[in-house]
């Protein structure tokens, strides 16, 4: 007692498929079916969604935040928000991109907080401290080199690049999420690309 009425709390364990009492499994169900059940209060269906998309959310949050310390918090917040708002989601089949949008927004909120909520474009002037040449030479692969270059980008440029190239957001979506005009997004993205190319060329 004490707890409020809940959907049947019957969590599945480990990574095995979730069986219902009919012995069937939710694990192969489509996002649309799972999102519909979760919207109606089915915790087991929600758990399948968490396991299915959680790792991707986490990988994306790590790209945006550039650190691991806040990633888990952001992803947890994302799923809690998702549970609350699922009943309002009109097109249940787009639950994955909807989750991506929430995680993106939560990660950007964290970054904004780091910058005392100053407007995004203000951050663009701030380049994080240069890493020494020794550090750069340690990079063993092009991937690590690019990762380092990305970390050194001014934050606003980095956000645009990650949203575009990693998150697959359109100019319009980035503009909407960051609250700046599409032309600004285009400019930030172009500068990000040029800087990355320059850094990659220097490394060669």
């Amino acid at each position: 007692m004490g707890a409020e009425p809940l959907p049947r709390p019957r969590p599945c364990h480990d990574h095995g498929p979730c069986h219902d009492h009919g012995g069937r499994t939710l694990a192969e169900a489509s996002d649309r079916i799972l999102a519909g059940r979760a919207a109606d209060g089915d915790l087991r269906a929600f758990e399948v969604l968490v396991r299915r998309h959680g790792p991707l959310m986490r990988a994306y949050a790590a790209r945006v935040l550039g650190s691991n310390s806040e990633v888990d918090d952001v992803v947890q917040e994302t799923f809690i928000t998702a549970w609350k708002k699922l009943p309002t989601l009109d097109d249940l089949s787009v639950v994955k991109s909807w989750l991506m949008r929430i995680v993106n927004r939560k990660a950007i909120d964290r970054i904004r907080a780091r910058h005392d909520d100053r407007p995004l474009l203000d951050w663009d002037d701030e380049t994080p401290p240069e890493q020494g040449p020794e550090k750069q030479a340690e990079a063993q692969s092009q991937r690590e080199q690019l990762k380092g270059a990305l970390d050194r980008l001014p934050e606003a440029q980095k956000q645009c690049w990650v949203m575009k190239e990693v998150g697959g957001f359109s100019y319009e979506e980035i503009s909407e999420e960051l609250g700046v005009p599409p032309s600004t997004v285009r400019g930030l993205l172009a500068r990000a690309r040029k800087t990355l190319i320059r850094e990659m060329e220097e490394w060669r």
Binding site: E47, G54, A59, D72
Partner: peptide, 17 residues
Amino acid sequence: NPLASGWVESILANVQR
């Protein structure tokens, strides 16, 4: 990098509230 079991459970515990 699948999610750790305890991690998923803590989300579910939060969500239950």
